[in-house]
Amino acid sequence: MKKIVIFASGSGSNAENIIKYFKETKVAQVVSVFTNNPNAKVIERAKNHQIPVEIFSKNELLERNILQKIQEIAPDLIVLAGFLLKFPQNIIELYPNKIINIHPALLPNYGGKGMYGMHIHRAIVNNKEKETGISIHYVNEHYDEGGIIFQMNVAVTEKDTPETVAEKIHELEQKFFPEVIEKLLNE
Rank of each mutant, 00 (worst) to 15 (best):
L61Q: 15
N37C: 04
Y138K: 00
K47Y: 11
Y116I: 02
I43D: 12
S57T: 14
N36T: 04
N59T: 08
K128E: 15
N39E: 14
L61D: 14
I51M: 10
I92G: 05
V125E: 04
A105F: 11
N14L: 04
Q89G: 03
K3L: 08
P178Q: 04
E167S: 06
N37S: 10
I55C: 14
P88M: 03
F22E: 11
K175P: 14
N126E: 15
H103R: 06
L85R: 05
I100G: 01
V27M: 10
F87N: 11
V42A: 14
E171K: 03
R122A: 09
I92Q: 13
E93N: 10
R122Y: 01
V53H: 11
T157S: 15
A46Q: 07
A105L: 02
L67W: 02
P52D: 14
L61P: 15
K2L: 13
E167Q: 15
Q89D: 12
N39P: 13
K41L: 12
I169E: 02
I73R: 02
N17T: 09
V154I: 14
A166I: 05
T161P: 15
F34G: 05
M152Q: 15
V154G: 14
K175E: 15
A46M: 04
I134L: 05
K86Q: 06
I100H: 14
I66K: 11
I102C: 08
G114I: 02
V27A: 12
G112K: 03
I181P: 08
N48V: 01
V139E: 01
I148Q: 06
H137C: 00
A40W: 11
K23I: 00
H142L: 05
V33G: 04
N127G: 12
N101P: 11
E163L: 03
Y110R: 00
K183V: 05
I43W: 09
N127R: 06
E173N: 03
E163G: 05
G146P: 10
N17M: 07
A15S: 15
A81C: 01
E72V: 03
N65H: 10
V79R: 00
S135V: 01
V27H: 00
I100A: 08
I66R: 10
